[in-house]
Write a protein that binds this DNA or RNA. Structure first.
Lengths: 347, 347
DNA sequence: CTGCTGAGTGTAAACGTTTGCCTAAACTAA
DNA sequence: TTAGTTTAGGCAAACGTTTACACTCAGCAG
């Protein structure tokens, strides 16, 4: 079908190997010959066949990106397009392609990854989540296949390359912000406890409370997959407490939006009755009502760094495992306000 | 590195070709031999090398997915993960891989696609958008490379396979819903006019007005990329009109959320002062405040159908071009209410 | 016993590259 | 001049498959 190196060689009056070396810009080929070959390539519309190349080099120029299970709505989180954007940008620059893998179940995802790895379809893998006891991660680790995690691995923290935020500190700081505003009863709503990110954010929240001499009541913490019913339940339970929270730390912007909606069903308004802070600073956070005070975790950069780190690892087999911490920044918007004794009593 | 077909052959005491035929489950190999070979494969941990296979078959088992430019925030639209989910599901089933392509600029995207196509990296391509005079589409069309568009091509409608909703009808029906509720002053806010989907939804909107004997005033229509400022401008202009709209047809749920926010800045509330309907029914539409009355366009199915259609085309070169219309369904929620003369006067 | 058929396998060429090694020519140094 | 060195490029093997064709052997008809 396509034009091959041989045809170019013939047209330029050289051997195929010469053409190959021209493509690689090998210094052993004279400028004159290079010019001639390049001309022939252009005229014939030559493009290298990557499969043939991959075969002999035993390296595809592509990296696998593993999304979490698409079964839950988490996938609709704008986090993913944004992190993909970061990954893609540096991959594109370094001429790498992106092979995507998703699946409804963990089993399906694992299958996909195995197909990638065993079939030599990719040179490395980026994991877009990090769950406790994750089969995919275990598989890659055992195979000693290059991979990096966006987030924090639950074990082997210093033999697995990962790029993450300092979620503990971020959570501590944003919780402290609530405390500074005068809030004393502060709840936490997070996703599955199996996710490292949830654990870290909860840890930071607890640290802040402790530091301020506040009690970290268990009944103030809630974990939910955040389907709609989960959100309702969380809000219902938290605000039926004898002393309901006046501030909420929520581990994801999208969750916040759902919670705000639920609160309204209960006749509570943000920020008048409840102050809310959350994480990620997705685009939505800015245009929702009210705009959210949230931690900008720099999603794009997470992706870009992961991509860069992985490719370095691929290109240099004994590049050490790295831990890359992307800085965060708190965005102050309108979902928080100083505790108002008046309303606090009303609640 | 990996185990090859030859090693399996040796272990099983057969020729490489026999192993290959066992993999393909060729009926000419006796059951006994198959069993023996399969055992050897398992014992050695054999996995076929897809690059070698692609090379000789000149077909990778993978399809390219082209996202729109990541420069704008459109990419953060949950539409994409969802359509990807659909694509991925059927691709996975049919053992196809997904190669992703994005870029900041149209030029970058084109480069990516060319790399896919010229390098024989993919067997076909799915375009996740359809813009007027799109270079990528033109390229694929000229190359006569298998591709399908999610959305509607601007030209060559019946030689280009595409899967779409009947956006005209959907828009007409949801506009009629507003009319039935008593609204007479109905505005339209849409994205770029270069997008086929915007045009169709506007057309349906106009048709509904016409059918009801209402005037389709030009100053009621607004196109914006929907960055935050765009939304503000739209709202500002529409509601400075001598007779501001009481109903709004908005071509995307995310835009609606932004508009609702903007309206509040102007002291207008949904649905009390303004009724809003929009399109897509992303997860957010359900948990936002108020929940949106919107057209469920069945995003997942759009993706699944596109994937199926493309693979059919790949596997059978002279499969005809198809047009697949995925049904929609209007979800009635709380962003609309009957026109209230009272409030209508107040506005 | 010969020749034929068909079932089951093997042989080897092909796919389009890359790359280690070889060689011819040109140059250098004595 | 000669021997040695460099330079520029060719030759051919290799990467791991698939597949057209060839082959062998059993069984069977004549």
């Amino acid at each position: 079908m396509g034009v091959t190196i041989k045809e170019v060689a013939k047209a330029a009056g050289v051997a195929p190997s010469t053409v190959s070396r021209v493509i690689a810009d090998n210094p052993r080929i004279s400028p004159a010959t290079k010019k001639r070959v390049r001309k022939a390539m252009k005229e014939l519309g030559y493009h290298p066949n990557v499969n043939a190349r991959s075969l002999v080099r035993s390296s595809t120029q592509s990296i696998g990106v593993v999304m979490p299970s698409s079964a839950d709505k988490a996938l609709q989180n704008p986090f993913f397009p944004e992190v993909l954007r970061g990954i893609s940008a540096v991959a594109h620059n370094l001429e790498y392609s992106l092979l995507l893998s998703t699946g409804e179940t963990e089993e399906e995802i694992l299958e996909g990854v195995q197909r990638m790895v065993y079939g030599t379809r990719v040179d490395g893998v980026i994991l877009l989540y990090s769950r406790l006891k994750d089969k995919v991660m275990e598989f890659l680790y055992e195979q000693n296949f290059p991979f990096v995690i966006v987030g924090k691995p639950n074990e082997n923290t210093d033999t697995i390359s990962h790029v993450d935020n300092d979620n503990i500190r971020a959570s501590r700081e944003i919780t402290e912000h609530l405390i500074e505003l005068g809030h004393r009863c502060i709840g936490f709503i997070g996703g599955s406890k199996d996710l490292a990110v949830t654990v870290d954010r909860m840890t930071g929240y607890k640290e802040a409370l402790k530091k301020a001499g506040l009690q970290a009541k268990k009944e103030y913490r809630f974990h939910t997959e955040f389907l709609k019913s989960g959100g309702r339940k969380a809000v219902h339970e938290l605000f039926s407490l004898p002393e309901p929270p006046t501030g909420l730390v929520i581990s994801d912007d999208l969750m916040s939006i759902g919670v705000i909606n639920m609160l309204e069903e209960f006749g509570l308004y943000v920020p008048e009755d409840v102050s809310i802070v959350s994480f990620n600073n997705v685009y939505m956070a800015e245009v929702t009502r009210p705009p959210l005070t949230t931690v900008d975790i720099n999603i794009y950069e997470l992706g870009a760094q992961a991509s860069k780190c992985l490719i370095e690892k691929i290109q240099n087999k004994n590049e050490p495992a790295k831990r890359i911490i992307v800085p965060f920044e708190i965005k102050h918007r309108l979902s928080t306000q100083p505790l108002n004794e008046e309303t606090s009593k009303r609640a």
